[in-house]
Amino acid sequence: MKNKKIKGIESLKSRYGFLFTLPWLIGVAVFFILPIIQSAIYSFSSLSIEPGRVLVDWVGLKNYNFILNENPQYINNLGAGLKNIFIQVPFILILSLILGILLNNEFKGRMIYRSLYFLPVIIASGVVLNLFLEASQGDSTEIATSASVSFGMIDFSSVLEGLNLPSSILKYLTIALDNIFLLIWQSGIQIVLIIAGLQTIPDLLYEVAHVEGATKWEQFWFITLPMMIRTMLLVVIFTLVEVVTINTNPVMEQGYAYFGNIEYGVGSAVLWFYFVIVGLVIAAVMFIFSKFLKKWG
């Protein structure tokens, strides 16, 4: 028998751990990393599709030059797409945080309300949501999904105008209310994640704070929020991805339009440039959160 080096239990375990994740690692390489690299190459190329294969012709920065300098629509769409992020993400975040906290406490009829609030998770992840928006736009009764119509006769925008708010906040609230259905229906998973996160905060902390005489408001700022920071990061990222990739996003629409016209190179460039910017936004968000994590985590 050869003199093999006897390995400790830790190294044995480390090998097992690697083996557990190995199939997934292969999957990621084949179905994720390679396609991503390929699509980056596409964005620098002119593509022509022949039956069964794709011919790739390297054209350098031509596609990017086209969308950024020769196509004025793209910059507009990009601006609108990024504006969507800054309008929708904070709204969804605050709404789902409020709803999550309200639903987490004990109260009568909690089960009924909770199951009601899980409905968007079940129904609204995709196809039906788009269909509903389309159906309500195209039908003869003209019931649009805007807040002013949906809540009966109350015209919310006129109520808001009466409140004498600064115009930037007013504008924000009006846009948010006009998209209220979309925004609430998109908050499903977020509410689930926030409730799950709230459940992990030990009751002990609240009891101590109560004994020390902290108000509910202080408890929220000094216990709930710091303890939820990791969950909030997950929720923010999830929301960002959802908002960024929804079909109604103007940049996505433009990209799909190019794909439809078999201009895959330009379409890839449209999406890549967009997602690089979005990636920077996400990196900035993660950076800010990591500061908080260091402080609170």
Binding site: F32, P35, I36, Q38, S39, T245, F275
Partner: peptide
């Protein structure tokens, strides 16, 4: 994998 949407690499995925 959580962050990058499939739309970004769908064409090359279909080639794969």
């Amino acid at each position: 994998l959580l962050l990058v949407p499939i739309q970004m690499y769908s064409l090359s995925l279909s080639v794969t």
